[in-house]
Design a protein around this nucleic acid. Structure first.
Length: 289
DNA sequence: ACCGGAGCCTGTTAGC
DNA sequence: TGCTAACAGGCTCCGG
């Protein structure tokens, strides 16, 4: 306990954060950034890791974004979507370890902050990214990136019927298919395992072999897992934190992910961990059929 | 159409 | 105790 606390305080101090952001974590980030960002104007930009900038490169990025005002902060799949003054839209993908926060410019920055935007009130939007997988885009037509994504799993148009049709059109192993962002946007490794467990469907099943009732159960499971994740403000596994540094609580109610060897909360079977599509996959071999 | 593997990264942890 | 190697994982690219 003491060690745990010390470790946590250390993390807070050093701003050492890794993240596994999926839809709920990105949604939590978007909601937290909206208030401090909307209405602010960018006055400067700094970057020390060129690969962070997917497009364009720094001089042009800075030239186009300075003077632009934030109109809204949203999300599409796992992308954060910042609508700026016409015609610019900025996208940020946090990938594995990205973290965004708006903080007073006088606060010391972590060494893992590699991209930073100065705002007209003295605050800064800081992109901290330990593993440097994250990417930032400044686009006039965000559809060039977002257009490749599959449907939003929480939208009104993503109905059980639509999902059943999507599954029948493919012949792929379920788990990797759910992680395919062109198939469905926003589901990652944690929530895929949770959704499949809720639905009592085995992750190794082939997509076009699901019955309509199994498909319906999986549709419900996906929405249940994601909504739970949003209401609990994300899963703070490893070092994920909300923009203000506090923890989400989804990790406390996981039923499959990270529970290998522990009893299934539905049937008492032992949760198994396998590798599927080179991703760790957790499921109950007893009740997920 | 689908699958598997490499590569991008670095902090953490398992193993010797 | 101290070192190294494996691991984590979203996504893209490549070859089969």
């Amino acid at each position: 306990m003491g060690k745990c606390l010390l470790k946590f305080q250390n993390l807070q101090l050093l701003e050492y954060f890794a993240v596994m952001p999926e839809l709920p974590e990105v949604e939590t980030t978007a909601r937290a950034l909206s208030q401090p960002l909307v209405g602010r104007t960018v006055t400067g930009m700094w970057n020390d890791w060129p690969k962070h900038l997917a497009t364009p490169i720094l001089p042009e990025f800075r030239h186009r974004i300075v003077g632009k005002r934030f109109h809204s902060v949203g999300r599409r799949g796992k992308y954060l979507v910042f609508h700026l003054d016409e015609p610019e839209t900025m996208l940020v993908h946090l990938k594995m370890s990205g973290h965004l926060a708006v903080v007073p410019g006088v606060e010391p920055a972590s060494k893992h902050v590699h991209t930073l935007f100065e705002l007209d009130n003295g605050d800064e939007l800081r992109f901290r990214d330990t593993r440097k997988f994250g990417r930032v885009y400044l686009l006039q037509d965000p559809q060039t990136v977002l257009g490749k994504l599959g449907p939003e799993p929480l939208s009104d148009t993503f109905t059980p019927d639509v999902f059943y049709t999507m599954l029948r059109r493919r012949k792929r192993i379920l788990k990797p298919l759910l992680l395919d962002q062109t198939f469905l946007a926003g589901v990652g490794n944690i929530y895929a395992d949770e959704a499949l467990h809720f639905a009592a469907v085995r992750p190794t099943r082939i997509s076009n072999t699901l019955s309509s009732s199994e498909s319906e159960a999986l549709h419900a499971g996906i929405q249940k897992a994601l909504n739970l994740g949003i209401s609990r403000e994300g899963a703070s596994i490893d070092n994920y934190r909300k923009p203000d540094g506090s923890m989400g609580s989804m990790q406390n109610v996981l039923v499959a992910y990270g529970r290998a060897g522990e009893p299934c909360n539905r049937c008492g079977g032992i949760i198994e961990k396998i590798v599927l599509g080179s991703r760790s996959t957790h499921f109950c071999p007893q009740c997920q059929v």
